[in-house]
Amino acid sequence: MTDDFELLRYITIGQYLPGNSIIHRIDPAVKLFSAIILILTIAFLSNYVANGFALAVVLGLVALSGVPIGYSLSGLRPAVWFIMALLLLELLFSPVRGTVLWHYAFLHVSTYSLRLTTTSLLRLVDFILLISVFTLTTRTNDVTRAMERISSPLQYLKVPTRELALIMTIALRFVPTFALEMERIMKAQASRGGGLTQASKWNIVAQARARLPLVLPLFLIALRRAEDLVIAMESRGYVPNQERTAYRQYRLVRRDWVAVAVAVGVCVGLVLV
């Protein structure tokens, strides 16, 4: 019952778990770069062996980082039925190739569709774990700074990378604030009898109407906060697109170069398998 109102429980993005593991200490941009190339590589792996190997690497990273595995997977929980449905569709409706293992009317499970489904599931788990390890071991502002640094070459193409990074920072900065705000609105409407009379799950109009008392106030609060924030930023001398210095300076050390080398090595290895 209590869990119904604890929204922070479900928000693992934007949370940081303090720690001093090797993963915590690697330069954020290096971490992000490694995570990206690993994700891209894993996305193209199609056989069992390579995927198994990838999962082992990812689990190794989780172990190194000291992040509880259950907690990093808890971000999946709200979507778990949706994912199951998708996987089931993939299993039953993929083109029939290889040996057919089971069939009923127009439904077929072949070795090909089984492989496709298994690798999809493994990939998904890999992605979630990699992203969690990255976000849970990296402070949110380091995340955005890392994005900024990795994308900084795009500046030459007139992409406003600093502005985008600031937008990201502010978005992440307000995730917990809005979660708490939403929690308060939910509790308040529940106290006024909201959610006591339940419309059928399939009565979409009634369901949407029932959400209105939650969504509308949050929307208004967000607008007002945004207005306040703009005034506060302007007061502190912020002018969009004006030249700004950066307080944080980063210098790569040996550990970071080793990390990059290992990441690239693993990716090449995976592709070769």
């Binding site: 402070r139 949110t140 502002n141 955005t144 600031l166 920072t169 502010i170 992440l172 900065r173 007002r224 906060r225 306040d228 924030l229 506060a232 930023m233 502190r236 001398g237 912020y238 002018v239 004006q242 030249e243 700004r244 210095t245 950066a246 307080y247 944080r248 300076q249």
Partner: peptide, 23 residues
């Protein structure tokens, strides 16, 4: 509604960055 950055020190630095001062 007036805190921009995601850590205390980064927020203190925000104004100075806007005035383009050396790190």
């Amino acid at each position: 509604n007036q805190i921009v950055a995601t850590t205390v020190e980064d927020d203190v630095a925000f104004g100075l960055e806007n005035f383009n001062l050396p790190p």
